[in-house]
Amino acid sequence: MIVAEQKALDEIRQLVGDAKQVLVVGCGTCVTVCFAGGAKEAGVLGSLLRMAAQMDGQPAAVTEVTVQRQCEWEYLDAIRGPVEKADVVLSIGCGIGVQALAERYPDAVVVPGLNTKFMGMPAEHGEWVERCAACGNCLLGLTGGICPIARCSKQLLNGPCGGSSQGKCEVGCGDSAPDCAWQLIYQKLAAQDRLHLIMEITPAKDWRSSRDGGPRKVVRADLKLPQPDIKE
């Protein structure tokens, strides 16, 4: 899932400015699951904004709506009415949701209420961890299902570096330090008697498949809809 965190209220209020009509748009998918931008958070944030505006003596009408997925046109189309009425649309979807809203409603002022953090998962209650960096050329088959690009602080493909100590990464301290990805890779492959996979040198990566090659796009010709015949 995409993991996000709400911005500080002060920053959100600055982004909203003196808008009289504010629409808070939650998203029912990833950010709901990570308790950052679902219907519940939209409600709480809406109330906070109303209260803050009241206290400032500049009451604003804040309404909330949550769509199933902010990153798909069909769900966004369903909220055209409230979006068009709002002075500011405060999206608490991930960065993709914010952009989808801004693109679907070119006249709307859309601002983000969240900081999108990473692609990851809940490791335990209240704790989410990064798992994938979307490099575009998965090498998990070589590394025992543990990604050194997302999980090694230096993205080493032939790790670990000299700072690996007692299973922890040198970045961060004590228990808060992340696990050393290469310690995990080593342990996993050793336990499975598959260390031969990392005996070979992994050559320098071709980062073109990653963000370094420019914005990416996946095209599936087999899924494209036929262009309708437009008859004059």
Partner: peptide
Amino acid sequence: NVHDMDSLQLVQ
């Protein structure tokens, strides 16, 4: 940080 390559790849 960059880490386009790691130290082993730099040696190569």
